[in-house]
């Protein structure tokens, strides 16, 4: 049997592209994305599951990548903030709404907010105000720009709802 403490290859799909890298068991998925795959759009804030900056979609569900070991994501399909815009660079509806409503100040928390909101609106395009707040309550903005973030979330929701009508 292989040494259970040794680094091993982790293969996964990130934004539709097959990627691989080596990870010792203790390497967090957040660090794997940033340091092994060079995908630095996923930000690392608190590293204990409180701030939400490192949120990614793992097999379609929003998760904190600082609370998942990279070895646990072997074989998974990931979406990160780099995968939100179209191939031609066109912003996703959620990104466009954040742009228009100025739903950011320093921008550090933005990738996590974008991913959390994308996950919600893909599951519930007509999300209620309460659902918007609940979906974003696990993401912290230390600039305290929540008013504009929620305005962006409502705009993205309204656009998503229109798109389906």
């Amino acid at each position: 049997m292989a040494d259970p403490g040794a680094a091993r290859e982790v293969r996964l799909s990130v934004n539709g592209v097959e990627r691989a890298g080596t990870a010792e068991p203790r390497l967090l998925l957040s660090d794997f994305l940033r340091h092994r795959l060079g995908l630095t759009g996923t930000h690392v804030g608190c590293e204990h599951g409180v701030c939400g900056a490192c949120t990614v979609l793992l097999d379609g569900e929003p998760v904190r990548s600082c609370l998942v070991f990279a070895v646990q994501a072997d074989g998974a399909a990931l979406r990160t903030v780099e995968g939100l815009a179209g191939e031609d660079g066109e912003l996703s509806p959620v990104q466009q709404a954040f742009h228009e409503a100025h739903g950011m100040q320093c921008g550090f928390c933005t990738p996590g907010f974008l991913i959390s909101l994308t996950a919600l609106l893909e599951e519930r395009p007509q999300a209620s105000e309460e659902e918007l707040v609940d979906a974003l309550s696990g993401n912290l903005c230390r600039c305290t720009g929540y008013a504009n973030i929620l305005a962006a979330a409502r705009a993205a929701r309204d656009r998503a709802a229109e798109g389906r009508a």
């Binding site: 599951g49 939400g52 949120t55 929003p62 998760v63 904190r64 609370l67 959390s116 919600l120 696990g138």
Partner: peptide, 9 residues
């Protein structure tokens, strides 16, 4: 319990 991002795991 926590937030959606916690309950998903």
């Amino acid at each position: 319990i926590g937030h959606p991002q916690v309950r998903s795991r």
